[in-house]
Every structure is written in C-alpha cells, then in structure tokens.
Simulated scan of single mutants.
Amino acid sequence: MQVVEILRKLIDFPSIVGTPNGAIVSWIDAYLRSFAVEAHILPGHEGDRANLFATIGPSDRPGYILSGHMDVVPANEAGWSADPFVLRTEGERLYGRGTSDMKGFLAAVLAAVPTLTASPLARPVHLAFSYDEEAGCRGVPHLLARLPELCAPPLGAIIGEPSGMQAILAHKGKAAARIIIKGRSGHSSRPDLGLNAVHAMADVLNAAISTAEDLMQGPFDGAFEPSYSSLQAGTISGGQAVNIIPEVCTLEVEARAISGIDPVSPLALVRNAAEAQKARGFAVEWEILSAYPALSLAPTAPLAGLLRELTGKAPLAAVSYGTEAGLYQRAGVDAIICGPGDIARAHKPDEFILTSELAACQAMVEALAARCRA
C-alpha cells in the first residue's frame, strides 16, 4: 500500500484518546503480519486499549525505535470543512484528524515496511506505537516496562511528533493535577451554617498564581520559549446557583518544567494550600492527572548526528511542548523528536499534512534501514 492509502485507513479509525483502540491495533497488526512481521500487543491496565511493539531484524542486537502514538484528540471543534475521520485530499494537502499529530508518521513508517523487510538487517528497527499519549503519555510507560524482554537495549528512539522533519533535541516536562474541595451546602442567607468550597479554593488558586509569578524569576534555559518553567490554572468549576453555598469546587492546574526540574515540584505549594483547607473542615482530594519528564539530548550525541545525516537538517535546540521522548530518556534510551507535519496544525479544525512531508518521512525511515544493513 502507498503511504496515502495507509494514512486513509488510519484516519478511518476514530481512535480518540481515552477510548478503546482495538480496531486500529488489529489493523496495524494484520498489515505487519502480511510482511511476516510479528507484533506484540501489550494491553494497558485499562483493559480496553493497548500498545503495539514490533521488531524488524535481530531483536538481540542494539537497534533503533520508531515511536508514535495511535490516539488523537477529539474533533468536536466547529470549523471542520468535512468529516474529520475521512481523509480529504486537496492538492498536496491531506485533511483529517491526526494527519499531522501523528498518524502521518505512523503511515510513513508502515509504508516503509516493504523496504525494511526486503533484505536482512544487521541492526533491528523497532516499531513502538502507543495509546493515550494525548492524555499525558499514559500508555507508553507500560511499553517501556516491557522493553527489556522485547529487545536488546536500543541505540536510540526517534519520536515522530510533527516537527517539519527537523530533529528536536529537548522539550519541557509536564505535570497536571486535579484538586477537589468538598464543603457543606446550604442557603446563602446562612453562610455560618455552610462551608463554601469556592471560597476555600480561592486560597489554592492564589497559591497557583503566586507560584506562576515566582517561576518567571528563573531558573532559565534559553533554549526554550519561554525560558523558564511555568504553571497555570486551566479549569475551575463549582457551585449551582448564586443563592446556594457551593459544596464542591474543582481546580485543574498544569506545570511545564525546563530540563533538570521535576515537573511535579512546582505543584508543591498548590498542594500545601489545598491540604491546609482540611483544618477548616473541608475534605480535599488531590490527583496527579499526568506527568512526564523533560527531554534533553546533547547536540554531540550519536543519535543527534544520525538524524542530521538522515534529514540533511541541523537539529533544533528545543521546543516547549512535550512528547513521550522524555520517558524514553528516563528509561535509559536516547531519544530525539523528528516527524512529518507541523505542530501548529495539530488540535485544530481542518488539520492537514502535505504529501511531500509524508514522502520525506518515508525516505528518512528507508535511509535508516539502509544504515542498519551496513
């Protein structure tokens, strides 16, 4: 199958983050088996979705991982010109949810499988396709935990997030948390008989704002924009009506951390402010929704040099968005970002990728295969 036809099939699967993904996993598995490539289907703890890992070449020798996620964000935004789960072609543009982020990469990798299997590889190329990346990289940790039994320690991992086929050496880490404060409802005319959860959450929100302002003072890493770690309150909700004391209030916060900083650490003051509400009679729930570390690959690393040669482009120092690459690095695998498409097109109506970008990515994978035969 040609790369556009493979992408068409992948877009057909509405593999929305947080939902079962058996259909897309089964199709990829069948496609690989048609080239005598055996895939390992690795279920997560949810029970209704799985990662997929396949090896082309000798699994007992160090090789390279091509990593991508199968899930996409929902396509409920207004502004889509057509069904987001049906690939639409207009000239060089291919429209559909996930075309850039990141089923275009998956399609290019799968289109290169005939080349990868055409003759024996001296070093293996592994395909690692994950689930629920869009929910804070929830799927890939299960895959990484199984990696030692699946293959020899890899030489590196290429994470195919949309980067315009320019390798990226670093990104920020991220942690998100949900705080729920529960008080006691009642009529607003008798505030002395209730516990106002919205008022209690104000202390927590102020702690988040104060932390965000403190982070702006450094430390700094000039490779990123902005050059400092950040924190924001993303959602807040509570109360039923203006004359009812609100019993419950929920706040969600997110921290993004430069390299060298645990992304959970900026949330400490926010959590302390929440826990302090217990002394006032409130019940408090704290939940980390997602967390992944920053990526920081040295420009002199062999993997950086390899991507420079494969793409013909000098690697970019850093981006502020996050990927699964930091988790690979924490697991002991050098990682770098490089994939087709543009992150600016992701998570928007009429998301698209260019046929030339798919071709460039397929060419990179096939050039990697040539290296692995040497």
Rank of each mutant, 00 (worst) to 15 (best):
A176Q: 13
R138D: 03
I158C: 03
Q166T: 11
H142L: 12
C137D: 10
A176G: 15
A157K: 04
R146T: 06
L155M: 14
P162G: 07
L143D: 08
G160E: 10
I159Y: 05
M165W: 04
I158A: 06
M165R: 02
P162T: 06
L144P: 02
P162W: 12
A170E: 13
E161W: 02
G139P: 01
P162E: 13
C151Q: 09
Q166M: 03
G156T: 11
R146D: 15
E149K: 07
A170T: 07
P154D: 13
P162Y: 12
L155F: 08
I158F: 14
E161D: 08
A145S: 08
L143F: 11
A170C: 11
I159M: 00
H142N: 11
K172S: 06
I159Q: 06
P154F: 13
G173H: 06
A176F: 07
A175F: 03
L147K: 04
G164A: 00
R178V: 05
A145G: 09
I179C: 05
G139N: 11
P162D: 12
A145Q: 11
C137V: 12
L155K: 07
A175S: 15
K172Y: 10
A167F: 05
A175H: 05
L144N: 00
V140Y: 02
P141F: 13
L150G: 07
R138Q: 14
E149A: 14
H142I: 07
A170I: 05
P153D: 14
L169I: 01
L144H: 02
G139Q: 10
C137K: 03
L155A: 12
C151S: 15
C151I: 10
I168E: 03
L144R: 04
A177S: 09
V140Q: 06
A167V: 03
I158T: 00
L155T: 02
E149C: 01
A170D: 10
L147T: 02
L169P: 03
P141S: 11
L169F: 01
G164I: 02
G156S: 13
S163M: 01
A157H: 00
A145P: 01
M165E: 15
G160A: 12
